[in-house]
Structures are given as C-alpha cells and as structure tokens.
Simulated scan of single mutants.
Amino acid sequence: MAIYTGEIYGKQTASKFVMYNVIKVSKQVVTLQNIDNPLSLFETTEQKLNASGYIRVSQTPFIDLESTTPKRRKAAKKPTRCPLTLDFLEDRADSERPAPIMQDLFS
C-alpha cells in the first residue's frame, strides 16, 4: 500500500478517534502530524503504520484555516488548490475536518 503526502490516517484510541496528516514521505520514513495538535509530530515506517492499526480516512488534505501559530514560524506548504473547494467525492471542503467514518466500528 502506497502512502502519499497530504493523506489523512486515523487510529482509534481508548477514548477517541485520532486523525493524522501525512506531512512527509521518504523511502523508509513517514512523518505524521496530529490534526488536533499541530505540534505533535512523529515518524514511523509504512509497515509499522499498517501493523499498528492506522487506517486511511481521506486522500484529500485537511487545511486548518483557523491556525493560531505565530507568523514567525516556517511557512507551511501552500495548498495547490483553494481550501474552500468542495470535493464531491469526499463530501467536504479541504478546510473541513474529515468525518471519522470508521469510528462506529470501534464503538
């Protein structure tokens, strides 16, 4: 299974369903960022990601339009399309948080 930058993966924890943006993909390492806590980053491999129970929630990136990070920080990669663009296949705009479709299976 190939993993690409911009995809969203999720994992059910004991209390909630947590979603992660794929920030960077190299030959061996995949870097993930927590959607709810942008300062939370971690690196893993594709094999460990699959073995740990992470599932792909969406192939459309999530862009936080209400970011409160200081402007001095390194600028985030600019989106290739307008964050308000409605993706009819995903049934949401890029700026809208994806619905955790697999959450019901773990409840």
Rank of each mutant, 00 (worst) to 15 (best):
I63K: 03
S40P: 00
T85M: 03
A76T: 07
L41V: 04
T80W: 09
P83K: 09
L39H: 06
S95M: 11
S95H: 13
V57S: 01
P100W: 07
A99Y: 07
K71M: 05
A76N: 06
C82M: 08
R81V: 14
S40Y: 15
I55R: 11
Q59K: 14
L39K: 09
E43L: 04
A93H: 02
T69N: 02
R72H: 11
R81P: 00
R56Q: 15
T80R: 15
S67L: 08
D104S: 15
P38Y: 06
Q47I: 14
D87I: 13
T60K: 07
S58K: 01
P61Y: 05
F62L: 02
L89F: 11
T45Q: 08
Y54P: 03
R56H: 03
L39I: 08
Y54K: 11
L39Q: 11
Q103A: 15
T85L: 13
R92N: 12
S67A: 05
P38M: 01
R56T: 04
A76E: 09
E90L: 01
E90W: 00
P98Y: 07
I101N: 09
P70T: 01
R97D: 01
S67Y: 06
E96P: 00
Q103E: 15
E96Q: 15
Q103W: 08
T60E: 05
I63V: 15
T60Q: 06
F42C: 05
P38H: 11
D94R: 13
N37L: 04
R92C: 12
Y54L: 09
T68N: 10
L49I: 14
T45F: 07
A51K: 15
D87E: 10
R56Y: 03
K74Q: 12
L89A: 05
E96K: 09
T68F: 01
M102E: 12
S40C: 05
I63Y: 14
I101A: 14
E90G: 07
K71D: 13
T60H: 02
R72V: 10
D87K: 05
K48I: 10
L86R: 08
L65H: 02
T85D: 03
I63N: 02
K48F: 11
N37F: 10
I55S: 07
P38D: 06
L86G: 00
G53F: 09
E96R: 04
Q47N: 09
T60W: 00
R73K: 10
N50M: 10
P100K: 09
K71Q: 12
T68Q: 10
N50T: 11
T44A: 04
T60F: 03
E90D: 14
R72Y: 11
T69I: 02
S58L: 01
E96D: 14
V57K: 04
N50D: 03
P98M: 05
P79F: 09
S95E: 02
S58P: 03
R92P: 13
R56K: 15
R56G: 03
K48M: 11
L39P: 00
Q59M: 05
K48W: 07
Q103F: 10
P61D: 07
S58M: 03
R72I: 09
K78S: 12
K78T: 13
T80L: 15
S52E: 13
N37Y: 13
P38I: 13
K48N: 14
P61E: 06
Q103S: 14
T69Y: 00
Q59C: 01
E66C: 02
K78Y: 08
A93L: 02
S58Q: 02
A51W: 05
Q59G: 01
T44Y: 03
L39F: 10
A93D: 01
L41A: 00
